Structures are given as C-alpha cells and as structure tokens.
Simulated scan of single mutants.
Amino acid sequence: MTRPIAILRPEPGGAATAERVRAAGLDPLVLPLFAVVPLDWTPPDPATFDALLLTSANAARHAGPGLDALARLPVLAVGRETARASEHAGLRVIEHGQYGVETLLARQPWSQRLLWLAGRDRIAIEHPAIRAIIPVYASETIAITGAQALSLSGTVALVHSARAMRQLAAQLDTHRIPRTSLRIAAISARAADADGRGWDRVAIAPRPDDTALIEVAQRLAIDP
C-alpha cells in the first residue's frame, strides 16, 4: 500500500507540486494551509542597489506594478521555481541557487548591494550584501476543518517551510489527530525541526527543491 502525498503549500505552488507528485506515480492530496496575498509597498530608487534577492516565487508573482520600477536590476533567485517566476514577471535572472539562500549568498561579495523582496513572515538572513528588505506579500494561515484534518491521517505530508510545519502541527492538535498517523518529508532541517515531535517518521530532502522533496516522500510513502 502506498500512502497519499499531502501538499500543504498555497496556490499556485500547490497545483504545480501536485503535478510533480502525479508524475512520480503517487496520489496527491492538496490541502493548502496558507493563502498568499499581495502587500502594499513603494519601490525604492533602483540606482541604490545592484541586484534583487528573491527567496520565493511568491515575491515575483505578487509584487505587482511596483516591480516594474526595479526591472533594470538583475535577480538572484533561490531555486529554479523562483527563477522561472522572476523571468515570467519580466526580470533578468543572473544566478539561481540549488542548495538554499545561505549557499547563494556565500558566493556574493560583501560590497554587493542587494534589495530583498520578501514575505512578511520570513526567517532572518544575515549577510552584509542585504542592504534593505521590503515585504511584498504575506502568507495568511487557513484554518482547516475537522474532516480535512482527518484526511491527513495516513499521508506523507510535504513540508516546504518551518512555518508550514508549525501550522500543520497546530491544526492536527486542534482537531486531535495523532501526529503518529503522519509521516513528514521536509524541505530542510530547519523546517523539520520547527515542530519535530511525535511524527511517525521524518525525512529531510538533500536539496531544497520539489524534485528532491518528492523523492524523499516517495520512499516514505511505501509501507511499512
């Protein structure tokens, strides 16, 4: 018996992950725990920066008209999905990372002047090249029903962030669904450690991308 794969990320990322899950021969259960909404923001003078740092495809998708004022700046994107969303928004990607933002930033000179277009809720990143941070989107939590929480029992849940891990744990605890009924495929150790108590099994992807995450989930999906 193969367990379903629970996809908790907001749209349109959830649908894209579901396609990849199906392509891997697995059954997706799409149950977003967040909805992404744009924030009001004012673009700064692009002349004061050398490049944009985008750590999520949602920044490119939801930044809105303000992004046009910064289109002359090249983009450092964390991951292929973020790079694709940036190019779709008309931006020029000069580098994208495969092993997380820390690895990407380690290759940047300290004299680089980066503008980070970020989410409202984010993990702090320390690097001298980050000269300013502007939140351009927010991921609002979605409370799921008891029936939806119950449907997660017996699945392998894909956890794309530390915040998603905490929200999953909170929703299951609210509806008294045992954590032992789920297995967790986490995109990073940070995500796995956000609330790592009581799960049946937890595995961490070797790279922070969907392909690696689904490969890990595929192994967890096979009982026992």
Rank of each mutant, 00 (worst) to 15 (best):
151 S>C: 04
134 I>D: 05
154 G>F: 04
118 A>L: 01
133 I>Y: 01
97 G>H: 06
149 A>M: 05
131 R>Y: 02
140 E>L: 11
149 A>H: 05
148 Q>F: 04
127 H>D: 15
102 E>A: 15
134 I>E: 09
146 G>R: 13
146 G>S: 14
130 I>S: 09
115 L>F: 03
140 E>I: 04
126 E>C: 00
120 R>W: 02
112 Q>P: 00
117 L>R: 03
132 A>E: 15
107 R>Q: 15
100 G>S: 08
108 Q>P: 01
151 S>N: 10
117 L>K: 03
116 W>S: 09
97 G>S: 13
103 T>H: 10
154 G>N: 12
117 L>D: 05
94 I>C: 07
129 A>N: 09
101 V>T: 15
108 Q>S: 06
121 D>R: 07
133 I>C: 11
104 L>Q: 11
126 E>S: 13
110 W>H: 14
140 E>D: 14
101 V>R: 03
138 A>H: 11
136 V>L: 01
113 R>L: 05
101 V>H: 06
124 A>I: 06
126 E>A: 13
137 Y>E: 08
143 A>K: 05
93 V>N: 12
157 A>W: 01
96 H>R: 14
156 V>Y: 07
152 L>Y: 06
101 V>M: 04
144 I>M: 06
135 P>H: 07
127 H>L: 02
127 H>A: 12
115 L>Y: 05
110 W>N: 14
111 S>F: 00
145 T>K: 01
137 Y>Q: 05
141 T>G: 12
149 A>P: 07
104 L>S: 10
148 Q>C: 07
100 G>P: 08
105 L>I: 07
113 R>F: 02
93 V>I: 09
92 R>E: 13
115 L>M: 05
115 L>C: 05
106 A>P: 01
139 S>Q: 15
125 I>N: 06
97 G>I: 03
108 Q>D: 06
102 E>I: 06
